[in-house]
Write a protein that binds this DNA or RNA. Structure first.
Length: 660
RNA sequence: GCGCUCGUAGCUCAAUUGGAUAGAGCGUCGGACUACGAAUCCGAAGGUUGCAGGUUCGACUCCUGCCGGGCGCACCA
């Protein structure tokens, strides 16, 4: 079932094509800005009047002459400078509502179509560093990433969730070193249920004890070289840490599974090869020098790179293949302006230089992919991960299940905080320079997206910390949310059993935290103030859950009513408003997916609940009197219930409750 | 210094990406429970969209310059 807005857009495009030629066809159809103007509006006439040299209202008239919408809308009206306003026919609205409510299969999608062009989408989110307990810094990536993958999945895209955990970094050296010491003293593996305390102890020793610090660094090397004892200790710490993060994921209701986890350790064996390949492919410099780098103006970042013909690059790379040539380019001979991507050793580190990036002294800023001491960094891991996701044969020993087939990603979405924007920009540019984003078969390009988000701030407007200045642990935060919700549940609905109350408190409390995060445009910062987060009034999670629970309550009272063949009458304005809003749900999902902005869905659901409340106040359902009206209103309840359930639970990952 | 980002009602945020008279919630004030759940609803007050220009039928949105906040900028992630 195609969405109504899309349908009107298509018909308008058709009419514009007929009236003025296909080259003018794209039509600007959006939902009406004001209910007075109807349900949808076409803004094409004004835009077209310039290119056509006709008055906009005349253009609008011509469009309407060729427009065939008699099966859906009342006669279109031209208004203002040249808006064409559409109002859906009452009968059409009723018919669509009936069609959605008709059977469980249609109800389960509430009119949301599957995407006509299914894509394979990798969503990289959560990604905690598992040497420490998860804290608020991980919250947004978890919540937003999960919502984005749910939305895309509901559109029938093939979503591959990836939890890129930090499980192989330098901190593990300390942890291994400390574990080894405790094991030697006590004969036992250290108890690390309290991961943070253990981490702190190791960090303190690392600061204060030179020998410890040195041995910790050695432990990292041993780990990376696969030395059995180090690996065994790492494995123990890793398992314990993962138990912790799995618990948090479960509390948050994330759809991530252990199968979705490929962390730094997974890519560790690939790092050397990745650096080698990049250094080889992007090698350039020395004799070729600036001449070879000239000729391509890349004032803007990234996008320009794809225009570099591969032959050019190969030629440039081939011009200087010797290690000596690489060395010659170091430092002093770096060009002032980088005009094309290239790799070379600078100050002992293997670097990729890309157009458009400069440091404080306006000198070219590198993406370092291997440190002077030979160690790899997160840029290396990210590049290895992207190569794995885009071009690597997935039939590797570690990864035979469950995704043994080639992923052939069409999009890779990173849900990480905005401070990493430059990092990802450089990593993506490097991938493009390597042409890993070109599908080997189709020749199409992969969309690399950083779906960034702002910081969570404390009430003081500074980064959210505890009073003692430590990061707030996620487990404690979710526990507090649940406790605060429990108080309200006990007060509002004391008749529920304690077990039931506990369950509801968790869904309400954690749902409130998730909703508070999702309802805001992800690109901005927001303040975490408990009173606001856990408030049950206004645009909040509990408000929406409450609306859902009230609908469920109606159906409980109604008993086993059969709505087969029932008609939607829609006589009251409140019924009309609710029904028309329900039909807009598919378009909201569409734009939320297009922009990767879950808050569009939040805003919509909140407004829908407002309309439902108005309907609920003015239109008695079960006490309506005649059976036809009861059934008609029950259909509206049924579809509203479905939209809320899909929106909250399936798309946003916020649980709905039959009662609360 | 360079780059990114934000600045909208007292407070917290929207505004379908260039559309019509800039909308909500909280707070304030005033109303509605012998009607399906009052965790609700209805009403009122509250604005020179940081400032100044520009682009055009039309600007919170785009371009330029200021002012103010946040973040990033060579071997941490």
């Amino acid at each position: 079932m195609i969405s109504i807005e899309a349908q009107i857009r298509q018909r308008c495009a058709l009419a514009i094509g007929k009236a003025f030629g296909a080259e003018h066809a794209p039509s600007a159809v959006v939902k009406a800005g004001d209910p007075r103007f109807g349900d949808y509006q076409c803004n094409s006439a004004m835009a077209l009047s310039g290119t056509l040299g006709l008055p906009p209202r005349q253009v609008a008239t011509r469009i309407i002459e060729h427009l065939d919408l008699a099966d859906m809308c009342e006669t279109p009206v031209i208004a203002g400078p040249g808006f064409i306003n559409f109002k859906l026919q009452s009968g059409f609205v009723a018919q669509r509502i009936e069609a959605i409510a008709a059977e469980s299969a249609t109800l389960a999608r509430a009119g949301v179509p599957e995407s006509p062009h299914r894509q394979t989408v990798v969503v990289d989110y959560a990604g905690p560093n598992i040497a420490k307990e998860m804290h608020v810094g991980h919250l947004r990536s978890c919540i937003i990433g999960d919502a984005i993958s749910r939305i895309m999945e509901f559109q029938a895209h093939r979503v591959i969730r990836q939890n890129h955990v930090g499980d192989f970094g330098t901190q593990f050296g300390m942890l291994i070193r400390l574990a080894r010491e405790i094991q030697m003293q006590t004969g036992d593996f250290p108890p690390i249920e309290d991961l943070d305390a253990y981490y702190k102890q190791a960090a303190q020793r690392d600061r204060e004890d030179e020998n410890f610090a040195r041995e910790a660094r050695e432990a990292v090397v041993a780990l990376q070289n696969g030395e059995p004892q180090a690996v065994a200790l790492w494995r123990r710490i890793y398992d314990e840490s993962r138990r912790h993060s799995a618990e948090i994921f479960q509390l948050l209701g994330l759809k991530l599974t252990p199968h979705d986890e490929r962390g730094e350790s997974f890519y560790a064996p690939r790092l050397f090869g990745v650096v080698e390949q990049i250094a080889e492919t992007l090698r350039i410099g020395g004799d070729g020098g600036d001449t070879a780098l000239d000729g391509i103006d890349t004032t803007s970042k990234g996008a320009e790179l794809t225009t570099t013909p591969p032959e050019d690059r190969a030629e440039a790379a081939g011009a200087l293949a010797s290690p000596q040539a690489l060395e010659r380019l170091s430092d002093a001979q770096l060009p002032d302006v980088v005009r094309r991507p290239f790799a070379c050793v600078s100050a002992g580190a293997m670097c990729v230089f890309l157009p458009g990036y400069v440091d404080k002294e306006k000198k070219p800023l590198p993406l370092i992919i291997q440190k002077a001491d030979g160690a790899f960094l997160y840029a290396t891991t990210d590049l290895a991960a992207l190569r794995f996701r885009l071009v690597e044969d997935k039939l590797t020993p570690e990864d035979q299940k469950p995704l043994h087939e080639s992923w052939l990603a069409d999009r890779v979405i990173y849900t990480t905080d905005a401070r990493q924007a430059q990092h990802f920009s450089m990593v993506f540019d490097t991938v493009r320079a390597m042409r890993w984003h070109i599908h080997s078969q189709s020749g199409g390009t992969v969309d690399l997206v950083h779906a960034s988000f702002g910081s969570i701030l404390g009430p003081d407007g500074k980064p959210f910390k505890t009073r003692s200045g430590e990061s707030v642990k996620l487990k404690a935060l979710l526990l507090e949310a649940t406790e605060r919700a429990a108080k309200v549940v006990a007060e509002k609905n004391p008749s529920l059993s304690p077990d039931r109350q506990k369950l509801i408190a968790a869904a309400v409390g954690i749902g409130a935290v998730k909703y508070a995060d999702l309802k805001q445009d992800r690109t901005g910062d927001y303040e975490f103030v408990w009173e606001r987060i856990i408030s049950f009034e206004g645009n909040t999670g509990p408000y929406l859950q409450y609306a859902y629970a009230r609908i469920c309550s109606i159906f409980r009272k109604a008993g086993g009513i059969d709505l087969t063949g029932a008609r939607a009458a829609l006589v009251e304005p409140a019924e009309q408003n609710l029904a028309r809003s329900l039909l807009k749900f598919p378009d909201i999902v569409e734009i939320a997916a297009r922009d990767l902005k879950p808050h569009y869905i939040c805003t919509y659901l909140y407004e829908l609940c407002g309309l439902f409340s108005a309907f609920y106040e003015k239109c008695p359902v079960l006490k309506a009197g005649d059976a036809a009206t009861v059934n008609s209103r029950l259909i509206l309840c049924r579809v509203t219930q479905a939209v809320l359930k899909i929106g909250l639970q399936e798309l946003l990952g916020i649980p709905v409750l039959d009662e609360m």
